[in-house]
Design a protein around this nucleic acid. Structure first.
Ligand SMILES: [Zn+2]
Ligand SMILES: [Zn+2]
Ligand SMILES: [Zn+2]
Ligand SMILES: [Zn+2]
Lengths: 125, 125
DNA sequence: CTTATTTTTGCAACAATGTTGCATTAAGTA
DNA sequence: TACTTAATGCAACATTGTTGCAAAAATAAG
């Protein structure tokens, strides 16, 4: 297994995501970093962070991809909660307490879920 | 309100999607049509089909977008069912009978959902 | 059937997002 | 300090989706 190193880019990006209330997209991160590193580096760091389970990926209802930190990972480590996507302010929020229940036909083997709900968030209504 | 016309492209594309067991992506449709019309036309037809509720859009766990026909639309017309994305054969299937239940905090107003589960489908296991 | 009206289409150009190869830089370690 | 290997920057490319505009096709009207 390969090693992983702590670089400025990685630290800064993880800090940004951890300290954000909402999930962040690549382009939002790029603006926030303001030239600290290259676009490509951001993509690679994000992949690494997901790989290392320090961050999780959220696919929005419009297909856009955002990243959020795993606040509850220390204990349970699953990312089965719902994400809410506000159509007004475009924010994507983890609702870590909301885990939907569903029953698939037996033969399906589940390894990952992505539940996104869009509408109007509390702040916008 | 504007009219809508029945064109060859629209008919062919709707047929393709209706007769498919699995959800189809733009590029899959393009290959199947084999030059019948331009890429751009396919995008525009797909948007129209979604607009007219003849087809629904599925955003996969990897962010890819696919389209599926609405078999149950005649009666209930909601697209709240789960979609299953097979990591092996890459197929995306509507599980029209599986509607997850979940409870959001009161203040959120829901207008659309996208539930995707990925793993291994029956055919691949 | 012919003409008129409005939607659709094709094409070219553009934009956004993500990936890859390769030489250079920098982190961790001995 | 020097060495090894991961991480970065840069350029180039790939995919997906959008927009403007002139030409073509579908419906409606005569
Ligand atoms: Zn909002
Ligand atoms: Zn989350
Ligand atoms: Zn499969
Ligand atoms: Zn479906």
């Amino acid at each position: 297994m390969k090693q992983t190193r702590n670089t400025t880019a990685k630290t800064e990006i993880l800090d940004l995501i951890s300290q954000s209330e909402v999930a962040l997209s690549h382009s939002e991160i790029q603006s926030a970093l303001d030239g600290l590193c290259d676009r490509v580096t951001i993509y690679r760091v994000l992949n690494r962070l997901v790989e290392e389970d320090l961050v999780h990926k959220v696919v929005n209802t419009d297909g856009g991809v955002k990243y959020a930190s795993c606040h509850s990972c220390a204990t349970t480590h699953n990312h089965n909660h719902i994400h809410f996507s506000c159509q007004k302010c475009k924010s994507v929020t983890c609702l870590e307490n909301v885990e939907p229940s569903f029953k698939l036909p037996k033969k399906y083997k589940v390894s990952e879920v992505n539940f996104t709900v869009s509408g109007i968030c509390p702040k916008c209504s």
